[in-house]
Design a protein around this nucleic acid. Structure first.
Length: 122
DNA sequence: CTTCTGACA
DNA sequence: TGTCAGCA
C-alpha cells in the first residue's frame, strides 16, 4: 500500500466531522455500520473513527440507496469489489515470487552477477 | 459538549 | 429515519 492510500485509510475523524463532510445524519451513518456497509474503527472510549475512504464509501452508499438498491445489494457489491482487489494482490505476490525465482536461477547460472560474470567469461 | 446504545410516543 | 433517554 502506498503512503497515499495509507493516509486515506487512516481512521481519524469522529462522527461529528463525518456528518459535516457528508451531510448525512448520525442515525444514517450508524445504521449503515449496523448493516455492515462501513466498518469505522473505535477509539478507546468506544467512539467511531472514520477514514477518508470511509467518508467516500458513506457517500457512495447513500447514492446507491438513493437509486433504490437494497442494503443487501450494496453489501454484495462491496463483497465483489473485495474479491477483485484480492485477486490483484495475489497477482502481485505471484509476480514477486516469479521475479525472486528468476533472480535465483540467473544467480545460480552466473549470468546476472557482473562481477562473477566477467570472471567466468575469462 | 460530543458520542454511544437502545427504544418507540 | 427522527428523536429522546441516560451513560461515559
Amino acid at each position: 500500500m502506498g503512503e497515499k492510500e495509507l493516509r486515506k485509510s487512516m481512521a481519524v475523524f469522529p462522527i461529528g466531522t463525518v456528518i459535516r463532510l457528508t451531510g448525512l445524519t448520525a442515525r444514517q451513518i450508524r445504521y449503515y455500520e449496523e448493516q455492515e456497509l462501513v466498518f469505522p474503527k473505535r477509539s478507546e472510549g468506544n467512539r467511531r473513527l472514520f477514514s477518508l475512504n470511509d467518508v467516500d464509501r458513506l457517500l457512495d452508499i447513500h447514492d446507491f440507496l438513493k437509486d433504490r438498491f437494497t442494503m443487501a445489494d450494496i453489501r454484495q457489491y462491496y463483497a465483489l469489489e473485495k474479491e477483485k482487489q484480492q485477486r490483484k494482490e495475489q497477482e502481485m505476490t505471484d509476480r514477486q515470487v516469479r521475479r525472486l525465482f528468476q533472480d535465483e536461477l540467473l544467480s545460480e547460472s552466473g549470468l546476472s552477477n557482473p562481477t562473477v560474470n566477467s570472471h567466468n567469461l575469462r
